[in-house]
Amino acid sequence: MCSVQVTAPMKINPKAPGISASLPAPIPAQLSTQAAAAPRHRVDAREDAPWVRFIVVAVAVAFMGLFVVLPLACVMTEAFAKGVAAYFAALTDPDTLAAITLTLLAAAISVVANVVFGVIAAWAIAKFDFSGKNLLIALIELPFSVSPVIAGLVFVLLFGLQGYFGGWLLAHHVKIIFALPAIALATIFVTFPFVVRELVPLMQEQGTEEEEAALSLGASGLTTFFRVTLPNIKWALLYGVLLCNARAMGEFGAVSVVSGHIRGQTLTMPLQVETLYDGYQITAAFAVASLLAQLAIVSLIVKVVLEARLERD
């Protein structure tokens, strides 16, 4: 064997080992001279010019600052506008406390309902192959694209005085509209897809081999679910719960339509914010709002942590 040198190696400026992306010149000679004239450091083909980078980051930060950070900062300053004492006085008002209790209750009901339904639906969708599956998924995600006001409206039309079951409910002294049941129903409606949509992709990706292994080792269906499937999806489930809870506690439109706005009884925290605000109790309104904002921020932090955790699995 002998090696044959076909062409003499091209002379390249050692300071420019990579071919720069932004150089238009197709001729090597030109590239070489240009590189010699203006020494460049190694440039990634995907790297943008520094001034482009600066402008893009500046625009992004300014846009986010204006539309996202400022409103959040505004909530906090307004809440404490009349001092710490006024802030805590607003939060310990009996009507506000009742609103907090109702919010926690409605959120708890919708989280439990959606976890049970979410796991069951995800099992059916992810572990089996059946026709009509895509339609079923689309129907489950439907509440996302329905206006919250309509979510409230449909329950008024069903259970309200002029609704389909209104007369019957009145005759049997069952209160749904303007009471907890309707608030819970409306909340479940708007949070309906949250848990399922986190579980389905993960469970589909994990397949059925581990379940088959457990079954062939003699485990029952339920044992297989609780000891093999559930541990594999627990972080995604928690993630779904987090999103579901955040939305449930913050839901305004749907709950507003079915609540009846009875102070101290059927007002959730967001509705309490509205009532206080409309009553010109601005500081109190922002105090309750700040509580909700803090909840949102905590949810976001937990979300980032959970996402890191999910990625690791």
Partner: peptide, 17 residues
């Protein structure tokens, strides 16, 4: 499957992760 007392080794092992 559970009643057959068959030991099964999966192609990709299917160990419980």
């Amino acid at each position: 499957a559970g009643e057959r007392h068959v030991g099964l080794v999966f192609q990709h092992y299917a160990l419980f992760r």
